Amino acid sequence: MVSPQAYKAKLMLIEIGEDPLTGRNTTPIRVSHVSAVLSFSECSLRQYHFVNRVMSWGEAQRYCRENHTDLTTVNNMIDLKNIMNTVNNQTVWIGLHKMNNITWRWSLGDPAFYIDEHKTWHQAQSYCRENHTDLASVRNITENEKIRNLTKNHKAWIGLFRDSWVWSDNSSSSFRNWNIDEPNFPGVENCTSLTTKGTWINSKCEDKFPFVCHNDKLVLFRENGTGALEHCRSIQMDLVCVESEEIQRGVMNVMKDTSTSEVWLGLRHSCVVGIWFWVSGEIMCYQKWAEGNGTGEEDCSDGGRAAAIQTGPDHTWISLPGSR
């Protein structure tokens, strides 16, 4: 087996659907030719590019879209640290900018711990990100009940907040790392710059800074289940392996472009030994199965099973015949 640290690959999602004219699923929806050296245990979804040329925010956005994918989005502290390692201790533009509409967003965490300490919402968010993952998101009534039981009916912060800042690539990331007393000067400073300390300040969009672009490593194609893996590898790519919550969120973001109810993952079931495994060769650790899928005995009468992620609000995984 090729060493994961030396395996040069691309990640691909395959959209399940059929062309109504030809009956074949070969119409590409989105293609991005970005290769990288990946570790199967620590897959990075993006490649960052520091551009040491001073431009306004709008100029930087156009440059990134013409030469890469977009001005970079920051999803979490790991992303932030990776970006900081590329910018040579300079203040740079990132993709966050202010819009007129104000929307509610989640702080991206998963429910896990109840901290019995009195803090402001921002203090609580910082504490959770430093010691756990993030403030809890509540995605359904079951999670709401779990959190209610944890808090023993006391009032407690969750990760829902409201703001008018959006990312240039329209991603759903609600991660924020504002400096103290930022953002300020509403209506005047509507673009975001990353300081040398790693915190963010809002700046006038016409100010001139270097900037950071990103390239996505996840792409979306139309293809049927049979031959999907072979097709991916024939163009030096692979079906995506979702090994963490971070990669799951990246897949969810790319799936905004799909028009079908499911998208293939690189997860297969071995009828011989009765386990699910990733096509990279790794045994499954992280999982997000829908109820009644993936955790019991599989029906192998049709020649094998494969997993797909649903496009519904929870983006859970389901088991399907591999020949579908």
Rank of each mutant, 00 (worst) to 15 (best):
W157P: 02
D169L: 03
K155S: 14
H154D: 10
G159T: 05
S172H: 04
W165I: 02
W157A: 00
W167L: 11
N170W: 05
N153R: 14
S171W: 01
F161M: 07
D163P: 08
N149G: 09
S164K: 08
N170F: 05
L150K: 14
L150G: 14
G159Y: 12
V166Y: 12
L150V: 10
S174N: 11
D169K: 02
W165K: 04
D169Y: 01
S172P: 00
K155A: 13
D169T: 07
N170T: 10
L160Q: 15
R148G: 03
N153P: 10
S174Q: 06
W165Y: 10
W178K: 08
W157E: 09
W178V: 08
H154N: 13
D169E: 06
N149W: 00
A156C: 04
R162V: 15
K155L: 10
L160H: 14
V166I: 11
V166H: 13
L160Y: 10
L160D: 07
F161V: 08
R176W: 01
S171H: 05
N153E: 08
A156T: 11
A156V: 15
L160S: 12
H154P: 01
N149T: 11
F161Q: 03
R162W: 06
S174Y: 13
K155E: 10
N153F: 12
S172Q: 04
F161T: 12
L160G: 07
F175V: 03
W178G: 06
W167Q: 00
W165M: 02
D163H: 05
S174L: 04
D169Q: 10
W165Q: 06
N149D: 08
S168T: 04
R148E: 12
S168M: 02
N177K: 10
W165L: 01
T151Y: 02
N170E: 02
S172N: 08
K152A: 12
L150I: 13
N149S: 06
A156Q: 01
K152W: 05
R162N: 11
S164R: 05
S174K: 09
S168I: 01
G159I: 02
N149V: 14
N149K: 12
F175S: 06
F175Q: 07
T151R: 04
G159S: 03
R148I: 01
D169W: 07
N170D: 13
H154V: 13
N177E: 12
S172D: 11
L160V: 09
D163F: 06
F161S: 00
S164G: 11
N177Q: 12
G159E: 01
S168V: 01
K155C: 12
S168R: 04
T151C: 08
D163N: 13
